[in-house]
C-alpha cells in the first residue's frame, strides 16, 4: 500500500519545496517570507519522514523530527521574533518578481539538465526528485544575490541550506543522526550570529542594506 503512495508522497513533498522556494523569490514582505520558510521546513521534515518510512529506519524518523523542530519552528521563530522586534522594512530587490520567477524557471530547467547527466545511472524515485534540491540551492543563491536586506539574505542562505539537505536526503537516503544534529545546530548558530550582526548594522547605519558595506576592500 505504502509503496504505491510513496512516489506520490515524494513528489508532493519536493513539489512543496520547489513551490515555497519560487514563492520566496516572488514575495517581498519579510514576514511572509519567514512563513514560507517555515512551510518549507515542514515540507522538508515530511520528505525526510517519508524516506524514513520507506526505508523503515527509526533513526531517519528521529532526524525528521529534528528537522521539523529546527527548520520548521526554531529558525522561523528566531527570524520572526527579531523582525517583529525591530522596525520592519520591506525588501526592494534588484530583480522584479516577473524576472525573478522567469529566472527560477530557467534555474530549475538547468538543474534538471545537470542532474540528468550526473545521476543518469540512478533510476530510483528519490534520485528522480533530486534536481529539486539542486534547484533550491540555485534559488537560494539567487536570493542571496538579489536581496538587499540582511534579513532576506539570511532567508536566501537558509533556502540554500535546505536545498543541500534535500539533495543529501534524496540521493543518500539521509545522513547519520549525529551529523544532522551537528549541521542543524550549526545553522541555528549561524542564524543567531547573523541576526546579532544585522542588529548591530541597524544600530550603526539605521538600516540593514548590505549595499552600504562597500568599504571592505582596500
Amino acid at each position: 500500500m505504502f509503496d504505491t503512495v510513496y512516489p506520490q508522497l515524494i513528489g508532493l513533498c519536493t513539489g512543496a519545496l520547489l513551490l515555497t522556494s519560487a514563492l520566496l523569490v516572488w514575495r517581498h514582505s519579510l514576514l511572509a517570507s519567514i512563513r514560507l520558510l517555515s512551510v518549507q521546513g515542514f515540507a522538508l521534515a515530511a520528505l525526510v519522514a517519508v524516506i524514513g518510512l520507506e526505508e523503515g529506519e527509526a533513526e531517519v524518523i528521529i532526524v525528521s523530527v529534528l528537522v521539523l523542530l529546527v527548520k520548521g519552528m526554531a529558525l522561523p521563530w528566531v527570524l520572526a521574533h527579531e523582525t517583529r522586534a525591530t522596525t520592519r522594512t520591506d525588501e526592494a530587490p534588484r530583480l522584479n518578481p516577473t524576472a525573478g520567477l522567469l529566472t527560477v524557471a530557467l534555474l530549475t530547467i538547468l538543474s534538471y539538465v545537470v542532474a540528468s547527466r550526473l545521476l543518469s545511472g540512478d533510476t530510483s524515485i528519490s534520485a528522480h526528485a533530486a534536481p529539486i534540491g539542486l534547484a533550491m540551492v540555485l534559488i537560494g543563491f539567487l536570493l542571496l544575490v538579489t536581496r538587499r536586506q540582511a534579513g532576506s539574505q539570511l532567508i536566501g542562505f537558509l533556502v540554500l541550506d535546505n536545498g543541500i539537505a534535500t539533495v543529501a536526503f534524496l540521493t543518500s537516503g539521509g545522513v547519520p543522526l549525529f551529523l544532522e544534529l551537528g549541521i542543524s545546530l550549526d545553522v541555528l548558530l549561524v542564524v543567531v550570529i547573523l541576526y546579532v550582526f544585522a542588529g548591530r548594522m541597524r544600530n550603526k547605519f539605521g538600516n540593514t542594506d548590505i549595499d552600504q558595506l562597500r568599504k571592505l576592500h582596500d
Binding site: 538547468l110 538543474s111 545537470v114 540528468s116 547527466r117 542571496l144 538579489t146 538587499r148 548590505i210 558595506l213
Partner: peptide, 23 residues
Amino acid sequence: NGSIHRYLSYSFVALLVVLIVVS
C-alpha cells in the same frame, strides 16, 4: 568594488557556468 552583492554574483555565475559546462 567591495559590494557583497557583486562578490556573491561572481560566485553564483561561476557556479552556473560550472553546472552548464558539466551538463
